[in-house]
Design a binder for these strands. Structure first.
Lengths: 210, 210
DNA sequence: GTCTATACTCTGATAGAC
DNA sequence: GTCTATCAGAGTATAGAC
């Protein structure tokens, strides 16, 4: 339940940050456990050991709070989201796909907020725009490095393939959240392997038809 | 505004159907014009020339109504969604991608309801499950025919590639609804062309990086 | 900073007349 | 089948005490 964190002295800037951190982590916990649709502000508040009004003191609105939850999730996942310089490591997008099936509640969170972020005023709109720029360029650069190393189809337009991988990942998450029999990681692997060039290291696992 | 339809005699079964048709078409019109988020039941009712309570006489709840709207859309699109037996024609999924950018409001409708359909009790849940089975098998069979005709990578697992195309299409719609600078049709084309085998007919248009 | 208490707002759902 | 009127409900947002 409530995490027994060290609390800096009251009124301090650090204390405010620490509280926000607690809230965001608790939100990830509850939503991860119960799913997006089943979670209301009060549930998160209870998890933190606070009231709903208390939450909104730190984040003015629910939507802003949720946008921060998404950012926090990326921070938690930074190990996955930061491309390794070791070309023997699987690329970001593959690691992410394999991770996502472990956290269905958070996939729900992502899918549902991405859909709501269609409205330009929604606080998550900006989040998704920002994130796309970052991730797309990381994946593109990773592909380019592999091309130079002879590990990836040299004819491919890295930016276009990166877009394909990101969109495939998003679409599979939506579909998998509705029908978990869909092979999310296997399908991302399959696309990657279509472009990957053989080497002693097997790029990713196999794929089951569906 | 209201479509001047022939009205079968009152009380008849045909009349009830005709009214429903009007409602569904009006819903597609309004949502197509104003987007999903900006549309409430009353707006649709006004378009039909009816009240909100009138609508709900025919469809018990808003969610059920919207599930029918999606089905109606597929019916309207049946020309696109039915694979041609002419292998010179672009495949379903390519035609669909090129069509979608013409109807942003309906892409919003699709994206947002797909996200809400994550909840198993949501009436759209079943719609998306059903549709996926149908479309996935159509695309798979289309690919298999092209493989036999030597127009498509014979090594590819048709079912897996079909899954890739469907998920790519969904993901691109989500992303494009947030950032319209993303090249939705071009990216689907790019994936298709990765598997297509050259012939006298150019399979699809070009692609701009993004 | 956090709580209690309450207001609000939106919109979908319902009851009952015609 | 359609309308008018009214409600219900579900959370979110806010005011103000501590």
């Amino acid at each position: 339940m409530k995490s027994p964190e060290v609390r800096p002295r009251r009124g301090s800037y650090a204390r405010g940050r620490a509280t926000k951190e607690n809230i965001l982590r608790s939100a990830l916990d509850v939503i991860g456990r119960n799913g997006y649709g089943a979670t209301i502000l009060r549930d998160i508040a209870v998890e933190v050991g606070m009231t709903q009004a208390g939450l909104l003191h730190h984040f003015d609105t629910k939507e802003k709070l949720l946008a921060e939850v998404l950012r926090k999730r990326d921070e938690v996942n930074r190990e996955i989201l930061t491309p390794s310089s070791d070309l023997g490591e699987p690329p970001l997008i593959i690691k992410l796909a394999h991770h996502n099936v472990e956290v269905p509640g958070l996939v729900q969170l992502y899918v549902r907020l991405q859909a709501e972020a269609v409205e330009p005023e929604h606080p998550c709109h900006e989040y998704f725009l920002d994130r796309d720029v970052v991730i797309h360029s990381r994946v593109t650069r990773d592909i380019e490095r592999r091309q130079k190393a002879g590990l990836f189809d040299p004819e491919a337009d890295a930016a276009v393939v990166a877009r394909m991988l990101l969109a495939l990942s998003d679409g599979l998450q939506s579909q998998w959240a509705i029908d978990p029999t869909i092979d999310l990681p296997g399908t991302v692997d399959a696309l990657w392997n279509k472009y990957a060039r053989p080497s002693e290291r097997p790029a990713a696992e196999n794929t089951q038809p569906n």
